[in-house]
Simulated scan of single mutants.
Amino acid sequence: MWKEFREFAVRGNVIDLAVGIIIGVAFTTVVNSLVNDIIMPPIGFIMNGIDFSNFFIVLKGDDYPSLQAAKDAGAVTINYGVFLNAIINFVIVAFAVFILVKQVNRLRKQQAAAPAAPPAPTTSEKLLTEIRDLLKAGR
């Protein structure tokens, strides 16, 4: 069983998957920062300083000035502003993955379209060519 597990764990696909997950986690951190620190502040500024992360509906409890205040008070809330941020994150990640896949496909097409060098003659072909040339020269 240990041998089978070791063979499974060191197969190329599993290692590629692990690398992909690690890069994905790092990429998610970058996208979250992009959305929360770069994209959402100007949108909030255009909308008169509204912070999307503070868009919420209180289902049970009093009115609260911010989502954090509602959470601290233990209020039951629907956090649609946080959900809106998650949707924006998803769209950005999906677009980045689309661009990446598009470029990889373009590179693959270029490699497939590139003319391949003719294969080198085999040893048998070389010998037959030499025999042919000797026979021609002997006539």
Rank of each mutant, 00 (worst) to 15 (best):
T29F: 14
V19M: 05
M40D: 12
R11S: 14
I38P: 00
M47H: 07
D16Y: 12
F27L: 14
F27H: 06
I46P: 04
V30G: 04
F5Q: 08
V25E: 13
I46Q: 13
N36D: 15
V31Y: 05
D51T: 10
G44E: 09
V30N: 03
L34I: 15
F8G: 04
N32T: 09
D51I: 11
N13F: 15
D37S: 13
E7H: 04
F27W: 08
S33P: 00
F27Y: 10
D37R: 11
I46D: 05
A26N: 00
S33Q: 07
I39T: 04
I15W: 03
I43H: 05
D16L: 14
F27M: 10
I38H: 06
F45A: 13
F52E: 02
T28W: 09
I15D: 02
V35P: 08
V25F: 14
N36G: 03
R6K: 15
R6E: 15
V19K: 12
N36Y: 03
L17W: 11
I43M: 05
A18E: 07
N13T: 12
I38L: 10
R11T: 12
R11L: 05
I22E: 05
S33M: 08
R6P: 02
I46L: 15
T28H: 12
M47G: 02
G24C: 05
P41S: 02
N32A: 09
N48P: 00
I21T: 15
D37P: 02
A18H: 05
F27K: 03
V35N: 09
V31F: 04
P42L: 01
P41A: 01
A9H: 11
A26I: 04
M40P: 13
D37A: 10
I15M: 04
I38E: 05
F5R: 10
P41R: 06
I46S: 12
F27P: 05
I22Y: 03
G44D: 10
I22M: 08
I39K: 00
V19Y: 01
I50R: 08
N48L: 07
V14R: 00
E7L: 06
L17H: 08
V30C: 02
I22G: 04
I21R: 13
I23N: 01
T28P: 04
A26C: 00
D16Q: 10
G24M: 06
G49I: 04
V19T: 04
F52W: 10
A9I: 14
I38D: 04
G44I: 11
A9V: 11
A26K: 01
V10H: 12
L34S: 02
I23A: 12
I50C: 02
L34W: 07
A26H: 00
F5H: 06
P41E: 00
G49F: 00
I39W: 01
P41N: 01
E7S: 05
L17A: 12
I46T: 15
A18D: 03
F52G: 06
P41K: 03
T29P: 03
G20R: 10
T28K: 14
L17M: 13
M47K: 06
I22P: 01
F8W: 12
D37C: 07
I15L: 11
I39A: 01
V25T: 09
P42H: 07
S33Y: 05
R6H: 08
V14E: 03
F52M: 11
I15Q: 03
I50N: 03
E7G: 00
I50P: 00
V10L: 08
L34Q: 01
R11Q: 15
F5S: 02
V31M: 06
A18P: 01
V30H: 02
I43P: 04
V19P: 00
L34E: 02
I50T: 08
R11A: 13
